[in-house]
């Protein structure tokens, strides 16, 4: 009973001390070799969000310390920024996209690259598949999990080396 009270007291003290941020120990699942890509198609605009663990892109997952590591991060950011070099979309769709902003998030001992690409396609109906050169650039990546939302519906699939992932079109 005594202990019980103590616990309650401690809990309420904690609650009073931390009223706003409820989830201070909320960590994201983290898996090496596992990259996610989200593709949304609406009208002529195509938006893609890519998330990749730092271990696969630059080979380390702590924050860059040496000059060498900093250079590696700079290089990776430049490589990841260009959607047209990273992804292969059907020629007929006529997609163009400018260099995107690459962010590097550090969460504890892990880091992750995150990129948001905005593309414009003259004929989005021709966007029947997507392929990537990611595996050639970063060999330790094993799978890219893709989620998509297109006019024909939502769905998920996996990008594999040398294989295009079909996208539903209406």
């Amino acid at each position: 009973m005594q202990i019980h009270r103590l616990c309650l007291a401690a809990l309420s003290a904690f609650a009073v001390g931390q009223p706003v941020v409820a989830q201070t120990r909320d960590l994201h699942a983290h898996e090496h070799g596992h990259v996610t890509l989200q593709v949304a198609v609406d009208g002529e605009s195509v938006e893609m969000i890519l998330e990749a663990p730092g271990a696969d892109i630059v080979g380390f997952e702590h924050s860059a310390e040496t000059d060498e590591q900093k250079a590696a991060v700079q290089e990776a950011m430049a490589d990841l920024a260009d959607p047209m070099a990273l992804f292969i979309l059907p020629e007929a769709a006529g997609c163009t996209g400018e260099a995107a902003e690459v962010e590097l998030h550090q969460e504890g001992d892990h880091n992750a690259f995150e990129v948001e690409y905005s593309l414009t396609c003259t004929d989005p109906a021709a966007l029947t598949e997507i392929e990537t050169r990611f595996f050639e650039l970063y060999p330790s990546v094993e799978e890219i999990e893709v989620e998509y939302a297109t006019p024909a519906g939502q769905g998920a699939g996996e990008l594999e080396p040398g294989e295009a992932l079909p996208l539903p079109t209406s």
Binding site: V21, D26, A40, D42, S45, I49, A149, Q154
Partner: peptide, 18 residues
């Protein structure tokens, strides 16, 4: 449709409630 993933992320990272 473009906003779907962004909204999902905002909700999944909502700090007040998991």
């Amino acid at each position: 449709r473009i906003a779907v993933f962004r909204t999902a992320r905002a909700i999944n990272e909502y700090p007040e409630e998991p």
